[in-house]
């Protein structure tokens, strides 16, 4: 993970090509209460273990990717285009 990321569009690329945005958290619906927005922006699950994080392939396809990985062992389970991820999440919801 920390060294190489398999971008679904560009193939396996070194970490230097990416910038990391942070935790994947769903944005509330526009009508949500302020508390939901506060939690969205400021509160983090911050688990020790499996974790989903946005990585931006800044020096590649410029797509946001959801990197599903373990933040203790650094094992990567999946790398998905963020749009596809969002659509899948939508379907799941």
């Amino acid at each position: 993970m920390a060294s190489l990321i398999s971008c679904p569009h560009c193939g396996t690329r070194p970490k230097e090509e990416f910038s990391i945005r942070g935790a994947v958290v769903a944005r509330p619906q526009p009508g949500a209460k302020e508390d939901a927005w506060y939690r969205y922006v400021f509160i983090r699950d911050n688990p020790k273990g499996r974790y989903q994080e946005y990585w931006h392939h800044a020096a590649g396809c410029r797509r946001f990717l959801v990197v599903d990985r373990d933040n203790l062992t650094h094992e990567v389970f999946a790398v998905t285009d963020a749009t596809e991820f969002a659509k899948n999440a939508e379907v799941a919801r």
């Binding site: 945005r21 946005y54 931006h56 797509r63 946001f64 285009d81 963020a82 749009t83 991820f85 659509k87």
Partner: peptide, 13 residues
């Protein structure tokens, strides 16, 4: 640019 990409790709695809 990154901000727009984030919004378009993850918030409002």
């Amino acid at each position: 640019m990154t901000h727009l990409e984030f919004a378009s790709q993850t918030l409002w695809p």
